[in-house]
């Protein structure tokens, strides 16, 4: 009995905190979604910042409703950071399409987004599909092309720049910087959350949907000085 009571005593505040947190998260999410929808119609360049902020908020929790799952016997391929960069000519370049495609003639989003809009398990490739950070751009093959052979036409002297190192923070334990540009990559959770995310860049806290509350892109190497 005693032990039960003590459990109850420590458990009750926990439950209360949980309920409060749940309500708070639901409220923030609701607000965020409304804010996002309201602002998505603006398309001018000046509004990009505002828009990207709203999208980051609105996309929160897109993986909370992941339904597709691999069968018990299968071992879905997990993605690695070196493979991620291998598929890009330089960090930030559009990745190649690493799998065969159904139609070369009709390669529009209607096909690609089936897997790449929300992600999820794809039995055909025994893998979780990575999620596109820009589903609004529908001419996918404008930038992403499959490779049909490895041989080159002529030798290239191109040297791939090193990818940014991860977990760079100003202080021990402080939130890491965003080491890449946010242009067309405003939806943080598409790469940093969900089952297809690469382990080493996966966020531990996808439920905290306002990513840029704590993480920021650094714009300058210069220290501020009083003018």
């Amino acid at each position: 009995m005693n032990s039960d009571k003590s459990q109850f005593r420590t458990g009750l505040p926990f439950i209360i905190i949980c309920v409060i947190l749940f309500v708070a998260v639901a409220f923030i999410l609701g607000e965020a979604l409304r804010y996002g929808l309201k602002n998505q119609t603006s398309d001018s360049v000046e509004h990009t910042f505002k828009k990207s902020e709203s999208i980051i908020l609105a996309e929160g929790g897109s993986f909370l409703s992941q339904t597709n799952a691999p069968s018990k016997n299968s071992q879905p391929n997990s993605r690695h950071l070196d493979q991620f960069y291998h598929r890009r000519a330089y960090p930030g370049a559009p990745p190649i399409v690493p799998h065969p495609v159904d139609s070369d003639m009709n390669p529009f989003a209607s096909k690609c987004l089936t897997c790449h809009q929300h992600g999820g398990y794809v039995p055909k490739f025994n893998a979780y599909a990575p999620v596109t950070p820009h589903p609004q751009l529908v001419n996918c093959r404008q930038c992403h092309v499959p490779q049909v052979q490895d041989e080159l036409f002529k030798i290239s002297m191109w040297q791939k720049p090193k990818p940014p190192s991860i977990h760079q923070s100003a202080l021990p334990g402080s939130p890491p910087y965003i080491p890449h540009s946010l242009h067309m990559r405003e939806k943080c959770l598409s790469c940093h959350s969900g089952p297809s995310a690469i382990q080493s860049i996966k966020t531990t806290h996808p439920e905290r949907v306002n990513c840029r509350q704590c993480h920021m892109v650094l714009q300058t190497t210069e220290q501020w000085e009083r003018p």
Binding site: P91, G92, P163, S165, Q168, S181, T221
Partner: peptide
């Protein structure tokens, strides 16, 4: 593990790797 990197990062222009995209 990031103590050393952090220390560097306090001195811009030396090895403030987070500031350029490709960390070189």
């Amino acid at each position: 593990t990031s103590a050393a990197a952090t220390a560097y990062s306090l001195f811009p222009g030396i090895a403030f790797s987070g500031l350029d995209a490709f960390n070189s």
